[in-house]
Design a binder for these strands. Structure first.
Length: 779
DNA sequence: GATTATATGGTTTTT
DNA sequence: CCATATAATC
């Protein structure tokens, strides 16, 4: 019987797949073309290792690109084996698996196990604060640009010290007019550490530090992970490569699965070098190519092969399929982006009626998130239910992030980003100036913002503000004392009540207010669901029903994890988000120059080839029908912009295309081989240089209409505001900002007097005496 | 200090 | 066009 089941799972495999599954020990690289059954191979291989070879699931590490892929694999293995052993596998994304390990090893790195994980918004915000504190120009050191640079460095395993001493990197920064980038990097890293926080890249960078600086940790995990499997290998970066190399060095049972033709994440530091390097780093690598496609029609596969053949750099392979010829690809030209949306909506309607397709059979794919708008509108008008993946995720909504910020502080009060976010939300009278002052004190004393808050009375804060701060601190401390008595959900409810956030949102009866209220309720529901779903944990890990575990989980969620696969809706997403998915009917929109290939990515062959791989990924998502569309003109920044059809359209042979709606012609050492070389070389091994491409700025030719500008006034050094209770018409005064002037008129109620003052430099202003700081000069 | 009005500038792609 | 940053007003 046992054998019988085993036979079953091996039966459905073709020869190449079978080879990949049966290979037991030693390194193996599987080049898996689109739709070639790669997930099937991975899951069967793991099932086989467990059932045939008796490998302990606790000792198998499988790294996937999304959490959803991990969950799916687990499920499929359980089904194959007919038991629940698969739940013991160490399986997840690089980031979530390493976060889990880092939690239990945190003290080694000087962190506590409840460290916060910063998302990109948090990280950018830290960069911004640091830039400000260093008195650098924010225009010159744009948080986004600087952060991307830091991120690239980390992904190449270049730390702050190395960064600052690498002359090539220094030169590059100097040329980009950002010579202080290294100093910012250093300050940024220190600040994150002080805040008890790691950013996304740290989860890789610090994992590497852990393994290289602590031999006992390296040995522990090398022993533990007897078998290692990596999915989507073409999208790994140098940091991930090195970590795997270290972890796999003992058993060398490393199995990587990837497709160089689908490498689309170079902007995140991924490099196909990792595929090429793999067979050099290990001896006797078994190579398997999966070339039979089970997904698409012959027509679809043909054009995919044609398109990708325009790329120079790639591993030779030829995908084929036994599937039907299928219909021709439809190429559709429309006048505007709105028409494109309408065309897609109409086509969906028709396919549903004539060919009996249902909403979940359709996917609309595009290059940039902004393109979703015209599709949404058309679908809404046509009455087709749809769902958008990506864009601003649920957990990035302001009200949700605010609420989460409270939870973050309860877990880790050193988290300055979270503190700044909600110290005055809901408004409790702790203003910007007070906060800035206190942060400054914290920096001067080299302590945390929270420590300053708990001793705020020592810093000459005025009594009303001090009271507010004390109230806030007391409340947070109360939450912290409840942390161990309550589960995550009950604590979250307590936070919602005590802060009055829920009540405030409930009382906001505007449409947006209602949506915000619902979002917070949904957050609470998600926490509840989390506390009620059982899961596994082992050897001294953070209890994974904890609030900390919840926070870790949500910050590492990917767009693709947002499941609802079964939802009765048409799906809209970027091509990046569609990786690994398949749909009976696929629409790819916006096939226009400047959009796809994107204008930001046509400057080098490497960039252009990645755009083409992206197009390849889009095409190969389709099983039965494929629609490619482009608009003559589309709204961009509120203005209609003309575009040529994408150059990629010319690469599709006519014989496979139905152009009846295309409007005529389409165109007008330790074996660290990888890490050899200096920091500069490593950061440039992938594509790009870590700087986002900057388009030359074209300034509008018009001059903005004149606006009464305030002539800045610098008050005398001895400026002390006077008591203005008895201010009278005719008196001369000095205003902190508007300068010298004469009181022309007094009005307003006794408790809120308003003076009309004629300023020498800035004309007549109405000033509320309750707030203004005025010095009376003479009568 | 908080709320509201105006101005600027931004679009790749994401863990 | 939209979201966020800054300035004006209360």
């Amino acid at each position: 019987m046992y054998l019988c089941r085993m036979q079953n799972y091996l039966d459905g495999l073709n020869e190449a797949q079978r080879t990949a599954v049966l290979h037991k020990d030693g390194p193996i690289m599987i080049i898996a073309g689109a739709g070639s059954g790669k997930t099937k191979v991975l899951t069967t291989r793991i099932a086989h290792l467990m059932s045939k070879h008796g490998i302990d699931p606790f000792r198998i590490l499988a790294l996937t690109f999304t959490n959803k892929a991990a969950a799916e694999m687990k499920e499929r293995i359980e089904k194959t084996l007919g038991n629940t052993e698969a739940r013991n596998l160490y399986i997840g994304t690089f980031h979530s698996v390493f976060a889990r390990i880092l939690r239990s090893e945190a003290p080694k790195l000087g962190y506590t196990s409840n460290f916060t994980i910063y998302d990109t918004d948090d990280s950018r915000s830290v960069v911004k604060t640091v830039v400000k504190e260093m008195n650098l120009d924010e225009k010159q050191y744009k948080p986004n640009v600087v952060f991307n640079r830091i991120s690239s460095a980390k992904n190449a395993l270049v730390g702050p010290e190395e960064y600052r001493t690498d002359s090539m990197l220094q030169q590059e920064d100097a040329r980009a007019n950002r010579p202080q980038t290294g100093a910012i990097y250093d300050a940024y890293a220190k600040r994150c550490f002080k805040n008890g926080a790691m950013d996304f890249d740290d989860l890789l960078f610090k994992m590497y530090s852990l393994l290289t600086q602590f031999p006992e940790a390296l040995s522990k995990y090398q022993h533990k992970f007897q078998y290692i499997l990596i999915d989507e290998y073409q999208d790994t970066n140098p940091a991930q490569y090195e970590i795997i190399k270290l972890l796999g060095a003992m058993h060398e049972n490393v199995c990587v699965v990837g497709d160089d033709a689908q490498s689309i994440y170079s902007f995140r530091g991924a490099t196909i070098e990792n595929i090429l390097q793999f067979s050099k780093d290990y001896e006797d690598v078994v190579m398997v190519k999966l070339e039979q496609n089970y997904r698409s029609t012959k027509n679809i596969l043909h054009i995919a092969n044609e398109v990708i053949s325009n790329n120079k750099g790639q591993i030779q392979k030829k995908l084929f399929t036994d599937n039907d010829e299928g219909e021709k690809i439809k190429l559709v030209r429309t006048f505007t982006d709105n028409d494109e949306g309408k065309m897609v909506a109409d086509s969906i309607q028709e396919l549903k009626l004539r060919n009996h397709f249902f909403n979940p059979d359709f996917a609309i794919l595009y290059r940039t998130n902004a393109q979703s708008r015209s599709f949404e509108e058309a679908l809404r008008k046509t009455g087709i239910t749809y769902r958008i993946y990506g864009g601003i995720s649920f957990y990035q909504r302001k009200e949700v992030k605010d609420f989460i910020a409270y939870l973050r502080i309860v877990i880790n009060p050193q988290d300055e980003e979270a503190l700044k976010r909600i110290i005055n939300y809901p408004a409790r009278g702790i203003g910007k100036t007070s906060i800035e002052k206190l942060v400054l004190y914290a920096n001067e004393r080299n302590t945390s913002f929270w420590n300053i808050l708990t001793n705020a009375s020592m810093f000459g804060i005025k009594s009303a503000t001090l009271e507010a701060i004390d109230g806030f601190v007391t409340m947070i401390k109360m939450f912290q004392s409840e942390l161990h008595k309550k589960n995550a959900y009950d604590l979250a409810v307590l936070v919602g009540k005590s802060t009055q956030i829920v009540k405030e949102l409930f009382n906001d009866k505007t449409v947006e207010g209602l949506a915000r209220y619902e979002n917070v309720q949904e957050l609470l529901n998600s926490i509840k669901e989390f506390t009620e779903t059982p899961s596994n944990l082992e050897d001294g890990e953070v209890g994974d029903k904890s609030l900390a575990a919840y926070l870790q989980q949500i910050v590492l969620l990917t767009d693709a994890d947002d499941d609802k696969t079964n939802a009765d809706a048409v799906k809209l997403m970027t091509i990046h988000a569609a990786k690994g998915l398949e749909f009976p009917v696929v629409f790819v929109g916006g096939l226009e120059e400047t959009l796809f290939p994107n204008a930001m990515a046509v400057h080098t062959r490497e960039e252009l080839e990645e755009e083409r791989r992206l197009f390849y990924v889009a095409i190969t998502r389709a099983k039965k029908h494929l629609y490619l569309s482009y608009a003559n003109a589309r709204y961009r920044f509120g203005q209609l912009q003309q575009n040529d059809p994408s150059r990629f359209l010319e690469e599709i042979p006519d014989e496979f295309v139905d152009k009846s709606n295309a409007g005529g012609n389409a165109r007008n050492n330790g074996g660290h081989t990888q890490m050899q070389g200096n920091a500069f070389q490593r950061m440039h091994r992938g594509f790009g240089n870590g700087y986002a491409q900057e388009t030359p700025k074209s300034k509008p030719a018009y001059t903005s209409p004149a606006r009464p500008k305030v002539v800045e006034h610098t008050p005398n050094a001895d400026f002390v505001p006077s008591d203005t209770q008895h201010l009278a018409v005719g008196q001369k005064v000095e205003h902190q900002k508007f300068g010298f002037g004469k009181v022309m008129k007094m009005e307003g109620a006794a408790h809120n007097p308003i003076a009309t003052i004629q300023f020498e430099e800035n004309g007549e202003k109405k000033i509320m005496l309750n707030y203004a700081r005025l010095r009376i000069l003479e009568n």
